[in-house]
Nucleic acid binder design. Structure first.
Lengths: 346, 346
DNA sequence: TATTTTCGTGCAATCGATTGTATTTGTTTC
DNA sequence: GAAACAAATACAATCGATTGCACGAAAATA
C-alpha cells in the first residue's frame, strides 16, 4: 500500500505543454489567461483529480486557514459547545479548528499558545485557565500580530475582542427569582473571584439582595471549585456550622448537584426546605428527578459570534485597522422545580 | 501593531557569515558540522529567538505533525473524552489534533475526510457516523497511504486498526446483573443495529437471556435513537401496548434517563417495580437522585490506546509493513440504585 | 614531498504554488 | 508594410528548510 502520487500544477502544465504559471493563473481565474486555456486547464485538472497543496500555499501566503482554540477542558459540555459553534461558523469558509487544553494550568496554556503560534495559525480563540494571572503569553500573541479573541473567561487587554456572557445579570436574575419565591436567607456558593465570571456572579447576587433590602450575611457566602464533590462539602460546611439558609444560588450546576445530594441525605426537602438555583444549564439539569433551576448560557451561539468577530477582524486587518469588539450575551433563567415553592411545573 | 518579522535560518547565516545549509545542519545536530560552528549557531539562534518554520518543513518532508479526528459530535462526553485521550498521548510528541464533526451524516464525514487529506495530516482517527454505510471515502484514506484508526464505531476494512469496547460483554454483564437481581421480564431499548456497537449490545442481551434460560420476547425489544426524548417515547410505547416488563436494559444512558422519567410519571417505582440499566456511564448518572446502574467505557483510555496504535503504525510504516491491530477494551458494570432490588447502596 | 583521506562548508536543487517582469504572438492603425 | 499596441504566455524569483554533490583545506599516509 504505497503513497499515491499527488498531482501538481506541473503535471498539468506538462500534459498541456504550457507553463506552470499559466496553470496557476487559470486555476485562480486570472483575467490574463485566455478562455480557451482556462477551460482546458480546468478540464484536465478535474481529469487528473488535482488538489491544491495547501502547505505550499500556506508557505507562500502565510495563511494556513487553521485557527487554534484553547480551553481548560474539551470534555466539559460548555466548552465543547463553544467549539462546536466556532467550527460551524468557520468550517464553511475553509478553516480548520485546532483544539488545545490547558487543564486549568497557566504553564500548559502558555506552551499550547507557543506551539500554536509556531504552527502559523490564522487566529486564536481562548478561554483562560483558572490559574492564569500572568498574561505575558497572551500579549505575545498580539505582538506577533495574530488575531486573538477571548470567550467566556477573559482578561482585559486593550485592543483585544471578547465574547462573554453577562454573568452579573444572570446571577441577579437567579437571586431575584429566589427572593420572589419567598426565600429570605439565600446563600451563595461561588467560584474563585480571580476569574471575572465568578466575580460577576457574586456581584449580581449581592446586588439583588441589596435591591430587595435583604441583609448580606458573609457566612452564607462560600468559594469552592466547580465539582460535585465541592458542592457536597460546601453544604456539609453550612449545615455543620449551623449557618441558617433557606436557599442557595450556586455558580455551577455541578456544585448545585452535589449540594442537593447532601441536602437530601440530611432529610431536607427541595424546594420546600431549601431552594436551589445553579448556573450553566448543563444538559443533565433538565432531566433530573427534580429538574434544576439554572441560568442558561447559549455556548454554541457564543462560539458562532466569536468566529464572526474573528472573520471581521481579519478583514479589517488588511486595512491595518484593529477594532476592539466586546460582545456580551444575555443569559436566560430556566425556572424549574428546585426553586418553585408555590407550585410545581411538569 | 504590525507583524513581527520571523527569524529564519538565513538571518542566522547572514549574521554569522556562513551558508544557510550549515545553519540547518547545525540546528539538526548533523555530524558534518564542527563543534565550534554548531555552538555558535545554537547560541545566535537562541539570541535571535529563532523558531523553525513548520510549514516549510512540512512542504519539504511531507509530515505536518497534525492528525485529524472525526467524530459525530464533539460535545458528547464520550467523544470529547476520547479526543482528550488522543491529545494527551500525542501532544508530548509534538502533534496537533484537528477535530471534525460529522453530525452523524456520511456526506459531512466524507467532506471532512477530504479536506483533512488535503491538509496533509499524518493520520486520521475516526468513529463513523450512524448513516455511514458506503465506505468509499474511508477506503480512499488507506489508498492514499495515510494511517487510519477506528475507535468505538468501526467498519471492517482489512489492514485497518481499531480500538473498541467489548459491547457484547458489557451488555451481557448488564443483563446478567438484572437477572441475578431477580428480574424476569427484561426489555431492551437498543439502537440502530447498522452500527456494530448496538448490534453487539443486542447480541449480549440475547445471549444473557439464553444463558439463564429466559424466554425471549420480541415485543420487549425496541430500536430507538440515543436521546432522552426517544427514551420517554419508548417506555410510553411499552406501557401503552401493555407489554409486560419488570426491567429494561438500554444501550444509552440518555434513553434510560428518559425511560425512568416516564416510569415515574406513571407512578412506577425504580427499582422496586422496574429495574433500569444504562450504557456509557455518562457523568450525570452517578449523581442522579437515584444513581443509575450503567456500563462504563473508559473513553480517555480508548483515545490513549488509539494514539499509541497510531504511533506504532507510523514507525512500522517506515519498514513498509502494515500491521492490523485490533484492541478491544473491557467495559465495567457500575451497580447503582436503579437495579438493586435487594437493598440499597449509598 | 606527493598523494590520499577526512572534515567542514558552500552551492544549488527541491517541495508546490504564486506573481512581477519579460517575451512572444497576434491585431490594429497609419 | 512598418510601427504601435494589446493579449497571452513564459521565465524566474520567492516562501524557509533540507540534502546530495562538489570543493577546498587540513591532516594522514605512503
Amino acid at each position: 500500500m504505497r503513497q499515491k502520487e499527488k498531482v501538481t500544477i506541473y503535471d498539468i502544465s506538462k500534459k498541456l505543454n504550457i507553463s506552470a504559471a499559466t496553470v496557476s493563473r487559470a486555476l485562480n481565474d486570472s483575467n490574463r489567461v485566455s478562455l480557451k486555456t482556462k477551460e482546458l486547464v480546468l478540464k484536465t485538472a478535474k481529469a487528473l483529480n488535482y488538489q491544491q497543496n495547501t502547505l505550499a500555499l500556506a508557505l507562500k501566503s502565510g495563511r494556513t486557514f487553521n485557527v487554534g482554540v484553547v480551553v481548560p477542558y474539551i470534555n466539559h459540555t460548555f466548552f465543547a459547545s463553544v467549539i462546536r459553534g466556532i467550527e460551524e461558523e468557520l468550517e464553511p469558509k475553509g478553516y480548520h479548528v485546532i483544539i488545545c487544553q490547558s487543564h486549568e494550568n497557566v504553564e500548559n496554556e502558555a506552551k499550547q499558545i507557543k506551539t500554536l503560534l509556531n504552527t502559523h495559525i490564522d487566529g486564536i480563540f481562548i478561554s483562560v485557565s483558572k490559574s492564569t494571572e500572568d498574561i505575558k503569553h497572551i500579549e505575545e500573541v498580539c505582538e506577533e500580530g495574530v488575531p486573538l479573541i477571548f470567550f467566556d473567561r477573559k482578561k482585559d487587554i486593550s485592543g483585544v475582542s471578547s465574547v462573554t456572557i453577562n454573568d452579573y445579570e444572570g446571577a441577579f436574575a437567579a437571586t431575584e427569582h429566589l427572593i420572589k419565591q419567598g426565600y429570605k436567607k439565600i446563600a451563595h456558593i461561588g467560584g474563585d473571584p480571580k476569574l471575572q465570571i465568578y466575580k460577576h456572579r457574586y456581584d449580581g447576587y449581592i446586588a439583588a439582595l441589596k435591591a430587595y433590602n435583604i441583609p448580606i450575611d458573609k457566612n452564607r457566602i462560600l468559594e469552592v471549585s466547580s465539582t460535585v464533590e465541592a458542592g457536597i462539602t460546601a453544604v456539609q460546611d453550612l449545615l455543620d456550622k449551623k449557618i441558617e439558609f433557606d436557599a442557595f444560588f450556586s455558580a455551577s450546576d455541578y456544585v448545585a448537584l452535589g449540594g442537593m445530594r447532601e441536602l437530601r441525605s440530611r432529610g431536607l426537602k427541595i424546594p420546600e426546605d431549601v431552594g436551589v438555583v445553579g448556573f450553566s444549564n448543563e444538559p443533565f439539569t433538565k432531566y433530573l428527578e427534580r429538574p434544576l433551576t439554572t441560568v442558561g448560557q447559549t455556548p454554541v451561539l457564543m462560539g458562532q459570534i466569536a468566529a464572526q468577530v474573528f472573520l471581521e477582524q481579519i478583514k479589517d486587518n488588511n486595512k491595518s485597522v484593529r477594532v476592539e469588539k466586546k460582545v456580551v450575551l444575555m443569559p436566560e433563567l430556566y425556572e424549574r422545580e428546585t426553586s418553585l415553592k408555590k407550585g410545581s411545573i411538569d
